Structure formats: C-alpha cells, structure tokens
Measured scan of single mutants.
Amino acid sequence: NQASVVANQLIPIQTALTLVMMRSEVVTPVGIPAEDIPRLVSMQVNRAVPLGTTLMPDMVKGYA
C-alpha cells in the first residue's frame, strides 16, 4: 500500500508547508504520495487542513 501525505498539525489557510507539518501514512482514500513531501515544502495550502487530514492535490497551490 502506498503512503500518502497527512497533516501532522492544523495547517492554517495560506500557510507555506514545512517538513514538520507533514507525515506519511497509509490511508484511504489515497492522497498526495509521500515521496512528494520534498516537493511540497514551501508550497501553500489553499484551505485550512485539520490534524490527521490527508493532503489531496487540490489542497496545495501549484501542486496539481
């Protein structure tokens, strides 16, 4: 099973992502693949992302 990127904390809207905000976890449905974590650093979320939420491509500006 492929690991996805999951929020390690509440990430407020417009926040630039850092490594400490994300973790990898095998979840359903599958979100952004964990191997993309380095690419996500400094990208902004376009909505508030609660703790434990799987990051989906449409939540990160410039990802999809």
Rank of each mutant, 00 (worst) to 15 (best):
R23N: 05
P33H: 08
S24H: 08
E25D: 12
V27F: 03
T15V: 10
G52N: 12
I37N: 00
R23P: 01
P33D: 06
A7S: 11
A16Q: 11
P38F: 12
T15W: 05
P12D: 08
Q44S: 14
Y63N: 02
S42Y: 09
G31Q: 02
D36F: 13
M43F: 09
R39M: 13
A64I: 12
Y63W: 13
M59K: 01
P57R: 06
T28D: 15
G31M: 02
M43W: 07
M21D: 03
K61T: 14
V45L: 11
V30H: 12
V27S: 05
N46S: 11
V49F: 02
P29A: 03
N1Q: 15
I32C: 05
L19I: 09
S42F: 11
R47M: 10
T28G: 06
P57D: 06
G52E: 02
R47W: 09
A34E: 09
V26H: 12
L10G: 10
Q9P: 00
R47K: 14
P33R: 09
Q14G: 12
M21W: 04
S4N: 00
V27R: 10
D36M: 14
M21K: 01
N46G: 08
S4K: 00
G52D: 07
P50Y: 13
I32G: 01
P57Y: 12
V6I: 13
V26I: 14
M21V: 03
T15F: 05
R23F: 04
N46L: 15
M22S: 00
V20D: 10
L55W: 03
A7E: 02
T28Y: 11
A64H: 15
T54R: 02
P12N: 08
V45P: 00
V27D: 02
G52T: 01
L55P: 01
M22I: 09
R39Q: 08
E25W: 06
A34I: 07
V6Q: 03
E35Q: 12
V41W: 01
A48T: 15
G31W: 03
L40T: 01
L51G: 12
G31V: 00
I32F: 01
M59I: 05
T28W: 08
M22E: 02
D36Q: 12
M59E: 01
A3I: 06
S4G: 04
G52I: 04
L55G: 00
I37F: 03
V6C: 05
M43R: 08
T15I: 06
R39H: 10
A34F: 06
N1F: 13
T15M: 09
L55K: 00
A34Q: 06
N1L: 15
Q14I: 05
G31K: 02
A34Y: 07
I13C: 15
S42D: 10
T15L: 05
P38N: 12
Y63G: 02
S42G: 14
S24I: 08
N8E: 06
P12Y: 05
I13W: 12
V49M: 03
A48I: 13
L51V: 11
L17G: 03
G62F: 09
S24E: 11
R47Y: 11
E35S: 12
V6R: 00
P29I: 05
V49R: 01
L55H: 01
I13Y: 14
Y63C: 05
M59P: 00
L19A: 09
T54C: 05
Q44A: 09
M56D: 04
S42R: 10
I11K: 00
I11T: 00
S24R: 10
L55C: 02
T28R: 05
E25P: 00
G62R: 06
V6G: 02
R23C: 05
I37H: 00
S24P: 12
K61N: 14
L19W: 11
T53A: 13
L55D: 02
V27E: 01
N46A: 10
G52A: 06
A64F: 07
V20K: 13
S42N: 14
P50F: 08
M21E: 00
S4R: 02
M22L: 13
M21A: 04
M59H: 08
L10W: 13
E35R: 07
M56Q: 13
T54W: 04
N1R: 05
S42P: 00
M56W: 06
L19H: 14
E35Y: 13
K61C: 15
L17W: 04
I11R: 01
V60A: 02
K61R: 14
P29S: 04
G62C: 13
M59F: 10
E35D: 10
E25A: 13
V60H: 03
P50L: 09
D58S: 11
G62T: 05
Q2F: 14
R23I: 06
G52C: 04
T28L: 10
D36A: 11
E25H: 08
S24T: 15
E35C: 12
V49L: 09
D36I: 07
R23V: 06
P38Y: 12
S24G: 11
G52V: 03
Y63E: 01
Q14C: 13
S4E: 00
T54A: 06
D58P: 05
L51M: 15
Q2Y: 12
A34D: 07
E25Y: 07
P12V: 05
P12G: 06
P57I: 05
Q9C: 10
G31A: 03
L17S: 01
V49I: 15
M59R: 03
P38W: 11
Q44M: 14
T18A: 08
L17A: 00
M56A: 06
M56E: 06
S4H: 01
A16Y: 13
T54D: 01
V49N: 02
A48M: 15
M56H: 07
